[in-house]
């Protein structure tokens, strides 16, 4: 028998980690962030480097790979990695303060710089990394549905989902408008003032069109019963992968162990 359309719009995931219920994923993200901060307080070597953050970061690629989304996550992490790298380099080589550790030519590495370089860049990589995992394994539709299920007002959920679509639409439209303006002779290359001037004819019609469109959109929504009070039906529903309890328990256990370890280090 042919599948119903309602059946066809559902999201089925075979991977148990990627298919975790969004709220469980969020729990993992929060606990991972807590662990990152706890581990960041453990210092090693003479200059107190937060070295534990480096092996801890290995959790991210492992998690992404076992969720079957390594490629996507690496791609998304590139932007973050670039920022982390710049921070690492700038802080290591440029920030003065404390003892000078190494010196070659005009470059020197100071104690304070190296310390913040390591903790800052890996802190960013860790926290950003876990969010990347969350967002790369969860579709926007699932996030929106989860928000609504967690008691968010339907209007707020609408704004969230519609924002994601609006970004796509306006990006498309801006390309069309920019090409049209280029065809009409608006310069997009040259010195900075020329380029800055090109900014206006590209953006003004875009915003204006969107505003006028919103007016009609309000009436469309009204005509579709947007503001009717009462229970709404949801054709799209979130699914559980079955590994929710195990995943949550594992995340809580690891967090407890790490916190216990940290306290033990203080006491001992």
């Amino acid at each position: 028998m042919e599948k119903t359309y309602t059946e066809r719009i559902q999201i089925h995931k075979t991977n148990k980690l990627a298919g975790l219920y969004p709220s469980v994923k969020l729990l993992v993200v929060v606990l991972y962030t807590v662990c990152t901060f706890v581990l960041g307080t453990v210092h090693f070597t003479r200059v107190d480097l937060s070295l534990l953050l480096i092996p801890w970061f290995l959790v991210i690629p492992i998690l992404c790979a076992s969720s079957g989304a390594l490629g996507k996550c690496v791609k998304a992490l590139k932007a973050v990695a670039l920022i982390a790298l710049i921070i690492l380099l700038v802080q290591t080589f440029l920030v003065p303060g404390g003892e000078v550790l190494v010196r070659f030519g005009f470059l020197r590495i100071c104690e304070k710089g190296l310390k913040t370089a390591v903790s800052l860049s890996f802190m960013i990589m860790n926290i950003a990394g876990i969010f990347v995992w969350l967002f790369q394994t969860t579709e926007n539709k699932e996030i929106a549905r989860a928000l609504e299920e967690s008691g968010m007002n339907y209007k707020a959920a609408y704004v969230f989902t519609s924002t994601l679509q609006m970004i796509d639409i306006l990006s498309e439209n801006s390309k069309t408008i920019m090409n049209a303006q280029k065809a009409r002779g608006v310069e997009t290359e040259g010195n900075m003032i020329v380029r800055a001037k090109a900014f206006f004819p590209s953006l003004v019609p875009l915003i204006l069109g969107a505003v006028i469109g919103s007016e009609e959109r309000v009436l469309t929504l009204e005509a579709r019963g947007f503001s009717i009070q009462g229970e709404k039906t949801h054709l799209f529903n979130l699914e559980k992968s079955g590994a929710e309890k195990t995943a949550a328990a594992a995340a809580v256990m690891i967090t407890i162990l790490i916190i216990a370890g940290r306290i033990a280090l203080w006491v001992l």
């Binding site: 119903t4 519609s162 947007f226 009717i228 949801h234």
Partner: peptide, 30 residues
């Protein structure tokens, strides 16, 4: 072009949007 809900990914869901708001049971919507 301005008469779409702006929150649905497929034509099927777009057409169903109003019925969802009215709280019609899923099988009937289909």
């Amino acid at each position: 072009f301005t008469q779409i809900s702006g929150v649905k990914d497929t034509v099927f869901e777009e057409v169903a949007y109003g019925l969802e708001n009215f709280g019609i049971p899923a099988e009937e919507i289909e």
